[in-house]
Computed example of a mutant assay.
Amino acid sequence: MKEERNTSLKRQTRQAAIVIIVGFLGWMGFQLVGGLTGIPVRFAFLADFAMLAALVWALFVLVNVWRARRSEGD
Rank of each mutant, 00 (worst) to 15 (best):
L36C: 06
L46N: 07
G23N: 05
R42A: 05
G23D: 09
A44W: 02
A44C: 02
F43C: 07
V41D: 13
R42F: 12
I18M: 14
V33Q: 04
V22P: 01
F24H: 14
W27E: 08
G35R: 03
P40E: 06
P40C: 04
V33W: 06
A47L: 06
G35M: 03
L32N: 00
M51H: 14
L46A: 13
A47N: 10
F45S: 07
V22N: 05
D48T: 14
M28S: 09
A54L: 15
A53M: 12
G23W: 07
G34K: 05
M28V: 12
I20Q: 15
L36P: 02
A54E: 11
I21F: 12
M28N: 05
L46F: 07
W27G: 01
V41S: 13
A47I: 02
G29P: 05
G23F: 09
M51Y: 15
G29I: 03
A54V: 12
A44N: 06
F49N: 02
V19G: 04
V19I: 14
R42Y: 09
F43L: 15
R42K: 05
W27H: 10
I21L: 14
I20A: 15
V33N: 03
I39C: 00
G38K: 03
P40T: 03
G35D: 00
Q31L: 07
L36T: 08
I20F: 13
I18A: 15
L46H: 00
G23S: 08
D48M: 09
V22W: 04
M51F: 15
F45T: 07
G26E: 11
I39E: 04
L32V: 10
A53L: 12
A44L: 11
V19M: 12
G34R: 00
A50D: 02
A50F: 05
G35K: 01
T37S: 14
F24T: 14
T37C: 09
L32H: 00
A47T: 04
F43S: 04
V33E: 03
L52V: 13
M51I: 13
I21C: 09
L36G: 09
F30H: 09
A47W: 08
G26T: 09
G23C: 09
F30V: 04
